[in-house]
């Protein structure tokens, strides 16, 4: 008998409207225990609005949201959730340590936990310095430390690598991977495809307020496609669209990409040669998340338009 695992976050038909602006439009989302879930989308897609709703900071216009079996913002839900929404916001006149001290007071957490999270984010040496003197990377790390104060089951991080230099990004990603491998569930929003590909187990892609796909990252990455270089390229495009279907073939600057497996390479080659098209390259490749993302978000914009 298969045991059903209850998702930690379940969102159904979530909509948020600000006047005439529809920020989030019928989003469905599910985060399972123990996974690192990437919430991917361009800036302004509705990621932060969705995460604010999940943490109870704003109310949805419609839809149902369940977080850790409760409603967002409930004390018992917040006690098991750590979050950093948008840029890390702390009191500039207090030290990092004092900022965490007062958050520990609010959260009802023992002070001993503060030292632990400062060590974890590698900020213990600068803990007594004022927050206003911190670099952006240190501010982000303090934000993560605050999110971890309660030793939460669910960690929600909104663009945690935003504004960091390459070394800061690398450290932050390593920290998030450690959180994920430590049994915590992480919901991470990002507009960086590579980041999600590196860190996450599953990804939800949002564009213009609508969820356009939700997949395992490995599943998306393992999808194969054929890269074709041929002349004349437009004729090759027409031939392959006719045979493989319009959705399966995309035209780039000087190549075609067909979403078919390597077992159909010979067939594609034969079709093109028989049509009098010179094929100079035909190879199989793994689709990058970037390709999937642009495909899906472009389609969504076309639908919206």
């Amino acid at each position: 008998m298969t045991k059903t695992v209850e998702p930690l976050v379940r969102v159904t038909g979530l909509t948020k409207r600000y006047g005439d602006t529809l920020a989030v439009d019928g989003v469905d989302l599910m985060v399972r225990p123990g996974e690192v879930y990437g919430f991917l989308g361009p800036n302004g897609a509705g990621k932060t609005t969705t995460l604010r709703i999940l943490t109870g900071l704003i109310s949805p216009t419609s839809g149902t949201v369940r977080v850790l079996g409760g409603s967002p913002g409930q004390a018992q839900v917040l006690a098991r959730t750590g979050s950093m929404i948008e840029s890390p916001a702390f009191y500039p006149y207090l030290s990092g340590l004092d900022n965490l001290r007062l958050l520990a007071e609010y959260a009802g957490v023992a002070r001993a936990k503060i030292d632990e999270v400062l060590e974890l984010v590698d900020l213990a040496d600068r803990a007594k310095d004022r927050f206003s003197t911190y670099s952006l990377g240190m501010k982000q790390r303090l934000g993560v430390a605050a999110a971890l104060l309660k030793d939460p089951e669910l960690v929600i991080l909104d663009e945690p690598t935003n504004g960091l230099d390459p070394a800061g990004m690398r450290d932050m990603r390593r920290l998030i991977r450690e959180l994920g491998s430590g049994g915590r569930t992480v919901l991470l929003s990002s507009h960086l495809l590579g980041e999600v590909q590196q860190i996450c187990d599953r990804v939800g892609i949002i564009s213009a307020g609508r969820m356009v796909a939700e997949h395992d990252v490995e599943e998306l990455r393992n999808e194969q496609e054929l890269v074709i270089r041929a002349r004349p390229l437009e004729s090759a495009h027409s031939v392959l669209r006719r045979v493989l279907g319009g959705d399966a073939v995309r035209l780039y600057d000087d190549t075609l990409r067909a979403t078919v497996g390597p077992n159909r390479a010979a067939e594609v080659n034969r079709l093109l040669v028989e049509a009098g098209i010179a094929v100079s390259e035909l190879r199989s490749t793994e689709r990058a998340l970037e390709d999937v993302f642009f495909e899906l978000t472009t389609e969504e914009k076309a639908h919206a338009g």
Partner: peptide, 18 residues
Amino acid sequence: TWGTLKTILSQRPGRGTV
């Protein structure tokens, strides 16, 4: 103005308590 209210509220206390 500092945005610290959201930081506090994402800890445990309710809005009224804060």
